[in-house]
Design a protein around this nucleic acid. Structure first.
Length: 929
RNA sequence: AGGCGCGUAGCUCAGUGGUAGAGCACUACCUUGACACGGUAGGGGUCGGAGGUUCGAAACCUCUCGCGCCUACCA
């Protein structure tokens, strides 16, 4: 970067953030190396491939942020870091998108034909398929883009074929005719996982009678009357006395004239529900299907693949499901067989993609045996080869794999990986990597494609070149961390585990890190229907609410979902990517719900402004032309203190990042920078690094040491915060003095881990500084409570009977003077001396005995205010004393609690009591004002 | 029905055995030579409820209420 504009104030992310992305890419910051000579340890994160149809939403922004933080952190720690990017082809979703485009031209995919349609999808994908990656760049994501993969790429497709063929050879992939979930709208089979259940749907329970041969009737109930056309039995409970007489009899179907048996089944029938008699439709209900197998019942499919009734429905053939339902009910009524309806709450199975009601349907599909692979995946987690964080998810993972069903992998779509199987009209099937040359023209390739998740399950190794034995595969498998939302634990994580173990013989990753769902501020899931969706880029670039929502109604919904945004005026300002990232990073990732509060982003945006301005000040204090000097460890108190605090912050940040508690790392950095560096350190070094009133400077050695420390801590802070705030830290780091050994970018500089900083830890110094801060705070409180003009200087004295305290305060009297704004240096005295009238007293209950802070207010003191202040302090002390007294008086505490805890409590009590005595004296004095 | 999670200051959230914390919001004062996107000081919580374990519980156990999610089932 040659173009370095002035540090404009205030900070404007829009001027800074666009400057750095191309810089990082051109310096190869993101590149992983599979060179055999590269001896660095590796850190690998396979990025969950977003749908190629996708546009960045909050979930992507969260995923991108968390992973980028981990990845940048490792990169700075010297790891050969691969963050593997890419997209998946999203079979149904993508096909639907393109079909919708065709519909606008008045065409269907059938008008084009399969080849032309697939070509059209590819064209669409070339035009818009990279959008989400471009959006991730805005957020500062740092994957190795050169390795970007798409699940339909030629090499990726080869891996899919190879996997299918091997599974078939091993007898795990098989073709079978059974009941599957069918979405009539998408006209494809679905796996169990792709069916969502809509709970609490209100429907009705329709009762009707079957005539029993030989006289009488039996009444059954159903929520789907149209399925009675496929009924092949009535089941009753064997022990139900109401129906004993009917066992073994047959009933007659009112429309088809078929007859079928009344069977007894204790598994299917709950005699207390409904009439206790159940119609059995093996071809259209999972329980009935199982019942049919138990009793050898006929399976009559009455539905076409598009959801209309087929020829088995007799006079109802051709009708749509819903139409048929009404017609069947009417017909039963006409025949006098209807027995009324009752309202009924049921759960509707819905297609995850289309939302249509899923129909169980008998169909021939490809299935994958899961049991063996599932057992291996269970073992891998039980034995600790892969660790799931947060660990609570392990149970869910186990439960899923322990109860897993075979996976229906074929889909009746055009867009996807073709199934490498060829069918002969006589029913023979050949599975092969390529169409065998000796197959005659009568052999046709299987028209179906594979479930998109099949290719996703190969992701951790197919992206690295599998089945070839590439250097990348050797180096980067298994991955280190797999980070994703808990909602795809089954869809993706479990399946990758199974395929990784099966094909690679090792787990696909060492840790699984699961984050929660980003929801609105009130805790509701974001959805278009609810009108509470926020586009992450709108937060980055800013927008008006009017642009985000179509009308007043939607605006009302939106503001209800985001109360804190409602108070923000007409829209979001441009918070910038750093602020959005940082905010997402401050929520514990493991929270199941991450309630996005726009106000929090605003607060963090202010933090960036603080960093910006603090750096401006630091650079000013260092002086123009200051160059980095490698200095020995500082000796000065304040310099040692800030180094110690920085070391603590580094340790906390490292620990947080290591444990996937990124929020703790963010908090540690935030607190250090603002509360230690800005609030205290920068204030304390100003007089050292600026000319005094008389034009003189502090001692040269002190100046040099302080400059070196300031430069060290500034540069270190920027490195510490870089994984969280890549843009602003790069901008400032480029301007900050730094060692010549550093590379071109802060992204390649070493992360200030606990080891590098440990030597600077100085708990003693931190404790003394805390005392100094309390003294200063006490003085400031008195000033504030008495409305002392901020420009006025006040006389101040610090009284303590402890020689070390006295010496310490004497040594730092200049700091106290500066921070409290006293007239001359504060006096340091022993306790108990006389006090001038008009003196306010505050007492610090330190472990070295009470420290009194006396502030001379002269005419400024207000009796009432002073009494009120003292009363408040006494009240606080009393509360603390009461708690301690209770503890010390309770039987058992003194005997049973650890001695050091008891001792500590006694010391505290003593300190508080002494403090209270001092305050009471002060109260008497104040009363005489 | 089972599993998981949540319930802490007005709001969003930290806090896994030793006297309750942060940000934002709120009150007062302050435009001081980094920053008003700021400073200083201050107010505000019987940690959903009940019981138990413990010298000591926001934290551990049991029960309970409310909310959310997941899995299964629902003729």
């Amino acid at each position: 970067m040659t173009d370095t504009p002035a540090l404009e104030q205030p900070y404007d992310p829009a001027l800074v953030e666009p400057r750095w992305y191309a810089f990082w890419e051109s310096h190869g910051v993101f590149a992983a190396s599979d060179a055999p000579a590269d001896a660095r340890p590796v850190y690998v994160v396979p990025m969950p491939p977003p749908n190629v149809t996708g546009s960045l939403h909050m979930g992507h922004a969260l995923m991108t942020t968390l992973e980028d933080v981990l990845v940048r952190w490792h990169r700075m720690r010297g790891f050969n870091t691969l963050w593997q990017p890419g997209t998946d082809h999203a079979g149904i979703a993508t096909q639907t998108v393109v079909e919708r485009l065709l519909a606008r031209e008045g065409k269907t995919r059938h008008d084009l034909g399969r080849d032309a349609f697939v070509a059209r999808v590819w064209q669409w994908r070339r035009e818009t398929g990279d959008r989400i990656h471009l959006q991730q760049r805005v957020l500062g994501a740092s994957p190795d883009w050169a390795r970007t993969k798409f699940t339909m790429d030629e090499d990726m497709s080869r891996a899919v074929t190879e996997a299918f063929v091997r599974l078939h050879e091993q007898g795990l992939m098989y073709r079978a005719t059974r009941l599957i979930n069918w979405c009539p709208e998408c006209r494809t089979a679905l796996s169990d996982l792709e069916v969502d259940s809509e709970e609490g749907a209100s429907g009705e329970l329709f009762e009707f009678a079957y005539e029993v041969e030989g006289g009488g009737e039996i009444v059954v109930a159903t929520t789907r009357p149209e399925t009675m056309l496929g009924d092949t039995a009535i089941a009753v409970h064997p022990d139900d006395p109401r129906y004993t007489a009917l066992h073994g009899k047959r009933v007659k179907h009112p429309f088809t004239g078929r007859t079928f048996p009344i069977v007894t089944d204790a598994i299917l029938v709950d005699p207390t529900f409904g009439t206790g008699a159940v119609k059995v439709t093996p071809a259209h209900d999972f329980n009935d299907f199982a019942t049919g197998k138990r009793h050898g019942l006929e399976e009559i499919n009455v539905l076409n693949l598009d959801g209309t009734m087929n020829e088995h429905a007799g006079r109802f053939a051709g009708m749509d499901r819903k139409e048929a339902r009404r017609a069947v009910k009417r017909a039963l009524e006409e025949k006098g067989l209807a027995r009324g309806t009752k309202p009924h709450v049921l759960t509707l199975p819905r297609c995850q993609r289309s939302g249509g009601v899923v129909e169980p349907m008998i169909s021939t599909q490809w299935f994958l045996k899961m049991k063996g692979m599932a057992d291996a995946a269970l073992d891998a987690v039980r034995s600790g080869k892969t660790r799931i964080l947060p660990a609570e998810w392990t149970k869910t993972y186990d439960h899923f794999l322990e109860n897993i069903q075979d996976w229906c992998v074929s889909r009746q779509l055009w867009w996807g990986h073709p199934i490498p199987a060829w069918h002969h009209p006589d029913g023979r099937i050949v599975v092969a990597r390529e169409r065998p040359a000796d197959l005659g023209p009568e052999w046709a390739q299987d028209p179906d494609v594979l479930d998109t998740w099949f290719s996703s399950a190969l992701w951790p190794f197919s992206t690295l070149g599998w089945p070839e034995k590439t250097p990348a595969l050797a180096r980067f498998y298994p991955a280190s961390d797999l980070e994703t939302g808990y909602d795809i634990l089954f869809f993706w994580v479990a399946r990758m585990m199974m395929f990784g173990l099966h094909f690679m013989g090792d787990v696909p990753f060492r840790r699984v890190l699961l984050h929660g769902l980003v929801v609105d501020e009130t805790g509701d899931k974001m959805s278009k229907v609810k009108g509470n969706v926020i586009d992450p880029l709108d937060l980055v670039h800013g927008t008006t609410f009017a642009k985000m929502v179509p009308d007043a109604d939607a605006m009302a919904k939106f503001k209800k979902a985001y109360p804190s945004a409602a108070a923000m005026g007409t829209g979001f300002p441009a918070f910038g990517a750093d602020a959005v990232r940082f905010t997402l990073a401050t929520y514990p990732p493991s929270n199941k719900r991450i309630a996005l509060a726009p106000r929090r982003i605003e607060g963090n945006r202010h933090f960036l402004n603080k960093i910006w301005n603090a750096t401006r000040l630091a650079l000013e204090l260092l002086g123009e032309g200051y160059t980095w000097t490698d200095a020995p460890a500082p000796e000065g108190f304040v310099n040692r203190w800030i180094r110690s605090r920085f070391a603590s912050a580094c340790a906390a940040a490292h620990a947080g990042l290591d444990a996937f508690r990124i929020d703790e790392a963010a908090t540690a950095a935030y607190r250090f920078f603002w509360y230690d560096l800005c609030d205290w350190y920068l204030e304390l070094v100003k007089p050292v690094l600026r000319p005094q009133a008389d034009g003189a400077f502090a001692r040269p050695a002190e100046v040099a040491e302080t400059r070196a420390t300031l430069a060290t801590v500034l540069e270190g802070s920027l490195r510490l915060m870089h994984p969280l705030l890549p843009f602003i830290t790069e901008e400032l780091w480029q301007r900050a003095p730094r060692p010549a050994s550093r590379g071109a970018s802060v992204a390649l500089a070493p992360f200030p881990g606990p080891d590098a900083e440990r030597a600077a830890l100085a708990p003693e110094i931190e404790a003394w500084m805390a005392t100094l801060q309390e003294i200063v705070s006490a003085g400031r409180t008195v000033r504030s409570e008495h409305d002392v003009d901020k420009k006025a200087e006040v006389a101040m004295a610090v009284r303590s009977d402890d020689a070390e305290v006295a010496a310490f305060v004497r040594a730092h009297a200049g700091d106290v003077r500066l921070l409290v704004k006293t007239r001359g240096l504060p006096a340091v005295e022993g306790r108990g001396g006389a006090r001038e009238a008009g003196t306010a007293v505050s007492v610090i209950a330190s472990q070295r005995g009470p420290i009194e802070v006396l502030v001379g207010l002269k005419g400024l003191v207000e009796k009432d205010a002073e009494l009120a202040r003292i009363d408040r302090e006494v009240k606080k002390l009393d509360k603390d004393l009461a708690a301690l007294d209770k503890k010390l008086a309770s039987p058992g505490f003194v005997d049973r609690a650890p001695p050091e805890v008891v001792e500590e409590a006694r010391r505290q009590r003593e300190a508080l009591a002494a403090g209270k005595t001092r305050l009471e004296e002060a109260r008497v004095l104040a009363a005489e004002l």
